[in-house]
């Protein structure tokens, strides 16, 4: 465990170099967000007598996007998938195979350090943005809701890391993984609820999407925060989320095992 803590600390130091980059990225990401919020405001302005959209009042809709931004800052992979793919392609993983350290655990430590720095840096622009829109921001109804939200963000982070790893491990089989990562990301972008809350979709489509792991990356934690998932639904949701993490982890280990057998350390 100590060695991974060490990796984490080194990761913190290395990532600090990118702090300006992170700041810029977090701030730039607010531009499309502001556009989306203006679009929704115009939608609600066009509605008569304060009607809502699929049970979302304007404030809740805005809160939804704000919490998505927050969860995304906590969990999104930054460069991890590209770096893993590059490590495989350039043969850098060889050194891990001969040492008593697990490459994936090593990457996970780096992911954690990257997220820690990113969250702290992103807190400046995102915090200002949230403050600016504070009248629309709804807070968790109770400490318990907040606890459940935190738990589901942790699970979402694990799931996010596992999915990113799986895509990166494609590098064992194909030369250029970037297109696959982007295609996967397009699906993730819509099915995780990044673009809009999933329950404004037609019911059948929402049900199909809920069968995939994607909603548990963003939509579910955000729904927990907003109090749209409660009681038994909340317990069941967390269990499903946990189950996806376990399934994902096992699948990742299996893919890693297969990949390693194929790996021939080109140029390593």
């Amino acid at each position: 465990m100590g060695k991974y803590l060490h990796v984490f600390l080194i990761g913190i130091q290395n990532t600090l170099v990118y702090r300006v980059n992170f700041l810029f990225r977090a701030a730039a990401g607010l531009i499309p967000l502001s556009g989306t919020l203006y679009l929704w405001k115009a939608v609600y302005a066009g509605k008569t007598d304060g009607a809502d959209v699929a049970g979302y009042a304007l404030s809740q809709m805005i809160s939804y996007y704000l919490i998505v931004t927050l969860v995304d800052a906590f969990t999104a992979v930054a460069e991890d998938d590209w770096q893993i793919a590059a490590d495989i392609k350039d043969g850098h993983i060889s050194q891990f195979l001969v040492r008593p350290i697990s490459y994936l655990a090593y990457r996970f430590s780096l992911y954690l350090s990257g997220r820690a720095i990113y969250t702290v840096v992103a807190l400046i622009p995102v915090g200002l943005f949230l403050f600016f829109l504070r009248e629309h921001l709804s807070l968790p109804a109770s400490p318990f809701t907040f606890f459940a939200f935190t738990l589901s963000v942790v699970l979402a982070g694990l799931l996010q890391f596992i999915i990113a790893c799986m895509m990166a491990l494609l590098a064992f089989w194909v030369l250029d993984v970037s297109t696959f990562i982007f295609i996967q990301f397009a699906f993730e972008y819509i099915a995780s609820g990044h673009l809009f809350p999933l329950d404004i979709l037609p019911r059948w489509l929402e049900q199909i999407i809920l069968l995939t792991p994607y909603p548990y990356l963003l939509y579910f934690p955000v729904a927990v925060w907003l109090g749209r998932v409660e009681g038994d639904d909340l317990t069941r949701g967390l269990l499903i989320q946990g189950a996806w993490v376990v399934v994902g982890y096992l699948l990742l280990q299996w893919i890693w095992g297969r990949g390693i057998r194929r790996y021939s350390a080109v140029g390593g």
Binding site: W40, V43, V53, A54, A186, I190, I200
Partner: peptide, 17 residues
């Protein structure tokens, strides 16, 4: 995806601005 997004929004409204 962008067209899909707008279609979903318009399934809840007639006109935007």
């Amino acid at each position: 995806l962008q067209i899909g997004f707008m279609s979903v929004v318009y399934s809840h409204t007639e006109a935007i601005a």
